[in-house]
Design a binder for these strands. Structure first.
Lengths: 241, 241
DNA sequence: AAGTGCTGTTTTGTATACAATATTCAGAAC
DNA sequence: GTTCTGAATATTGTATACAAAACAGCACTT
């Protein structure tokens, strides 16, 4: 519409130009880097963050670093105590038990709100799932594929707020999944649930699909909880600091 | 436990002392102030935020102010475009339609996860609701009471992550409700739904209670959507900037 | 009159400086 | 040897400084 009227009047259509020449603030880049460092465990859970040292390592000043850290704190990757700076949020059983129920509930809502997926999407979902089954159970690629699958599943959900919340929670969960992967060499993926979800959707049975979606996430939780319990039990000797 | 062993050894029990002498960072105080300014409309929706001016007005430097602004951006009160700073998030129909469904879904989950409320809590809820019915329909106090009621309803939910998300969403919603109040002199409260929720809970019918909870929030949404539509429709002449 | 290019001013984004609080560690007291 | 104390050090929280954009105005062209 814009473009048509513009063309009609002999002007160029600015609105539909290729790219908006993005200027990414330093704080944003820094944040991505630090977030990856946390996800990959390079910054150990529970460990303190030394601002000056980290800023130096990244080659930036403390200002954009702090802004990045504050953002990561808001998302739950970091904690901060007044006067003693930031520390990496520890991996806790409680967090796992808190995060996943919210996650599956929100994904369920998102699925309910979504327009029925197009046939092409359904096929792509099935294809992705086959890839997933083929991928090594131990590979990080499996996690990426799983994430892609879920994102595609919800791609027609019109509720932005919802999708954003879901994304944040998934990232938080991924932190645990990655840690689990590094520890056990495995990764909690369930291509089986994906198939049942798709089958239910093909029949137009959204309730069923939502139910399987919940089961899908529960698989992850059931992998993680015993692992993290074991992880935290063996060190009861040292008093807390 | 700590206190007993401490007393036995003749030391004072530091751990159970009255207060932890809280040192609140400036960024936190500033954030509260700015958040209130946004909620009360003192910072107009869509308007730009001039950092230097605001910092001067608050009597602080730009650093803690910026940290506060970034936090408020993460929560959805502000937006920021690279290179041109912060602006107050506009009030949009879309936001209302996005926020409330997530809100009632999460509150429903929280209610399901909660242990059955004690008798004393039930009585207090009923009492609060009577107060609410008594409060002027137009008063801000009604909003406060409503908030209190919901918080108490979910007070036994063990999922922190969930409660935090709910709190954030409620604050966002409150921004619309306050704006609506300032505009129309009324406030979307439904003490009726509260009664039905309590009745369902008394019968142990959580499903029913969750259903009424959804209706409760839908009342707010149904108040806000037409209002905001009317609010935005009258100005279609001016091209967007 | 609408558009263009220049110039001075604002405003943001980042870096640095400084003050106050935490932490550390050597030595004293027990 | 352990626990306390206090000076030395490190680290955070906030303020200020600076550089690079963005913005606003204005003469100039057409």
């Amino acid at each position: 519409m814009t473009s048509e009227s513009a063309r009609r009047e002999g002007r160029n259509d600015i609105a539909s130009m290729p790219a908006a020449l993005v200027r990414v603030p330093l704080r944003t880049k820094v944040r991505r880097v630090v977030q990856r460092a946390i996800l990959q465990g390079a910054l150990a859970p529970g460990g303190d963050v030394n601002e000056a040292a980290l800023a130096a390592k990244l080659g930036v000043s403390r200002t954009p670093l702090r802004e990045a850290l504050l953002g990561l704190e808001a998302e739950g990757y970091l904690e901060s105590a007044a006067g003693r700076g930031f520390s990496v949020a520890p991996l806790t059983e409680r967090d796992v038990e808190d995060i996943y129920p919210v996650l599956w509930t929100l994904e369920g809502l998102a699925l309910r709100l979504s327009a029925p997926p197009k046939a092409a999407t359904m096929n792509r979902l099935a294809e992705l799932n086959r890839e997933l089954e083929g991928a090594a159970r131990s590979s990080k690629k499996a996690l990426t594929l799983d994430r892609k699958w879920h994102d595609l599943l919800l791609s027609r959900c019109p509720n932005r707020q919802l999708l954003q919340s879901i994304g944040l929670l998934k990232d938080l969960g991924e932190r645990y999944e990655l840690a689990y992967m590094r520890h056990s060499g495995q990764v909690p993926i369930s291509a089986k649930q994906h198939r049942t979800i798709l089958a239910a959707l093909r029949k137009g049975n959204v309730d069923r699909a939502v139910q399987y979606l919940e089961e899908n996430w529960r698989v992850s939780q059931d992998f993680l909880v015993p692992w993290i319990q074991a992880l935290q039990a063996p060190a009861p000797m040292r008093a807390r600091r």
